[in-house]
C-alpha cells in the first residue's frame, strides 16, 4: 500500500497537545531517568531571520547506555525503564525551545545523537534532522557535505547545557534529511 500524503500541521495545532512536562525526558511517570541530565536550547528561524513561534519540535534518542526503548534494538530489554526517549515542545515568541534530557549513549556505528522533527505551518512535510555533541563521525554525519557538518553539532553552553539552533532556510541552513 502507498503511504498517505503528508500535509502541513498548520497554524492551529491544539496547545493542549503540548502536555506539561513533555519536553523533560529526565522524568518519566515521576521517576528519574539514569544518566547525565542535560539541557538543549535553541532557536528556530526562517529565511528572513524571523523567529518562529509555536513551532512543534519532537525528539527521539537512546537512553544513557545507548539503548532504544523499542523491540528493534536487540538490547531493548535492558533499556532504562524510567526513560521514554521521546519528547515534544513548542517554540516561544522568540522562537526559542528547550528540552531537558539525558545524554544519549553511542550505539553500533553511530555517535551519540538526538533525532529532531520539525512541524510547522507552511512546512508541507515534516523536516528531519539530527543533533550531534561532537565531530565524532558516524554513517549519518558522513552523508552530510563536509562544509555543512558543523551545523549539526550542538554548541556547549554552561556546565550541562547545549545550544542547537535550527535555520529552516537561508544562510547556515540546517541540513535536513530525505528518508
Amino acid at each position: 500500500m502507498i503511504p498517505t500524503g503528508e500535509a502541513t500541521i498548520g497554524p492551529f495545532f491544539p496547545p493542549r497537545y503540548v502536555d506539561a512536562g513533555a519536553n523533560d525526558l529526565t522524568l518519566f511517570e515521576g521517576r528519574k531517568a539514569k544518566g547525565e541530565a542535560i539541557e538543549i536550547r535553541g532557536r528556530v528561524l526562517q529565511e528572513d531571520g524571523a523567529a518562529l513561534e509555536n513551532l512543534v519540535l519532537e525528539i527521539w534518542q537512546t537512553d544513557a547506555k545507548g539503548i532504544y526503548r523499542h523491540p528493534a534494538d536487540p538490547r531493548h530489554a535492558q533499556a532504562d525503564a524510567d526513560f521514554l526517549g521521546w519528547g515534544r515542545t513548542v517554540t516561544d515568541a522568540g522562537g526559542e525551545y528547550v528540552f531537558r534530557t539525558i545524554r544519549p549513549g553511542a550505539t553500533e556505528g553511530r555517535a551519540p545523537h538526538i533525532n529532531f522533527m520539525v512541524m510547522y505551518s507552511g512546512l508541507m512535510r515534516i523536516l528531519k534532522t539530527t543533533m550531534y555533541f561532537t565531530h565524532e563521525m558516524d554513517v549519518v554525519l558522513s552523508a552530510v557535505p563536509v562544509s555543512r557538518r558543523e551545523l549539526l553539532i550542538a554548541k556547549k553552553q554552561g556546565p550541562d547545557g547545549y545550544r542547537f539552533d535550527i535555520r529552516l532556510r537561508g544562510e547556515n541552513e540546517t541540513p535536513f534529511f530525505d528518508d
Binding site: 526562517q46 529565511e47 527521539w60 553511530r110 532556510r169 537561508g170 541552513e173 530525505d178
Partner: peptide, 20 residues
Amino acid sequence: LRNPREPLIRRPPTLSELSG
C-alpha cells in the same frame, strides 16, 4: 520562507530511525 533551499540529504537508515 520555511522550506530548505539546499537539497535534502539521503542517509542510510539505521536503528535510530528504524526504532521510535
